[in-house]
Simulated assay, not measured.
Amino acid sequence: MAAYFFDFIIVALLIIGITAINGVLTNGIGEKVFGGKRHSAIADHSAEIQSGWKSVGGKEKK
């Protein structure tokens, strides 16, 4: 019975790990292929919009 649970945990970790790696790789390929030349312009614009926002949550910096 212990061997069954051990095998189950190994398979579960493999499935979760392969899915996570597949998601990261697919996202990276998608950004390279479909991101276009404006990829950094969009990120810069988003950072510019958020520049005046107050920091919410976490501990206050001293």
Rank of each mutant, 00 (worst) to 15 (best):
residue 24 V to T: 09
residue 29 I to T: 04
residue 34 F to G: 04
residue 42 I to W: 12
residue 55 S to K: 14
residue 59 K to H: 07
residue 50 Q to M: 06
residue 44 D to N: 14
residue 23 G to F: 15
residue 4 Y to L: 05
residue 18 I to R: 03
residue 28 G to D: 01
residue 17 G to A: 01
residue 40 S to T: 13
residue 34 F to I: 05
residue 29 I to H: 02
residue 27 N to T: 14
residue 57 G to L: 10
residue 18 I to W: 01
residue 35 G to I: 04
residue 24 V to R: 11
residue 59 K to W: 00
residue 29 I to A: 08
residue 58 G to R: 08
residue 16 I to G: 00
residue 17 G to D: 03
residue 43 A to V: 14
residue 9 I to V: 07
residue 59 K to L: 08
residue 26 T to R: 12
residue 23 G to Q: 10
residue 38 R to E: 14
residue 42 I to C: 00
residue 53 W to N: 15
residue 47 A to D: 11
residue 10 I to F: 00
residue 37 K to Q: 07
residue 53 W to F: 09
residue 31 E to M: 08
residue 3 A to I: 10
residue 10 I to R: 05
residue 31 E to W: 06
residue 8 F to W: 03
residue 14 L to Y: 04
residue 31 E to L: 07
residue 23 G to L: 11
residue 11 V to T: 10
residue 38 R to Y: 10
residue 23 G to S: 12
residue 51 S to Y: 03
residue 4 Y to C: 01
residue 10 I to A: 03
residue 31 E to C: 00
residue 30 G to Y: 12
residue 52 G to H: 09
residue 43 A to I: 11
residue 10 I to T: 10
residue 17 G to I: 04
residue 52 G to R: 06
residue 48 E to P: 01
residue 22 N to L: 15
residue 43 A to D: 15
residue 46 S to N: 08
residue 9 I to Q: 04
residue 38 R to I: 06
residue 23 G to E: 14
residue 20 A to E: 11
residue 5 F to T: 09
residue 50 Q to T: 03
residue 31 E to S: 03
residue 19 T to I: 11
residue 23 G to D: 10
residue 36 G to R: 03
residue 15 I to P: 00
residue 15 I to R: 04
residue 44 D to L: 14
residue 33 V to F: 05
residue 36 G to V: 05
residue 23 G to V: 05
residue 44 D to C: 05
residue 11 V to I: 15
residue 31 E to H: 09
residue 26 T to W: 08
residue 5 F to W: 01
residue 39 H to A: 09
residue 58 G to C: 11
residue 7 D to W: 00
residue 38 R to D: 15
residue 58 G to T: 07
residue 34 F to V: 07
residue 23 G to N: 13
residue 42 I to F: 12
residue 53 W to I: 10
residue 15 I to M: 07
residue 9 I to E: 09
residue 25 L to D: 02
residue 21 I to Y: 06
residue 51 S to T: 05
residue 34 F to D: 04
residue 37 K to L: 11
residue 7 D to I: 02
residue 38 R to K: 15
residue 24 V to A: 14
residue 34 F to T: 01
residue 3 A to D: 06
residue 29 I to Q: 03
residue 53 W to K: 14
residue 19 T to W: 02
residue 36 G to S: 02
residue 36 G to K: 05
residue 24 V to P: 09
residue 58 G to V: 03
residue 19 T to V: 10
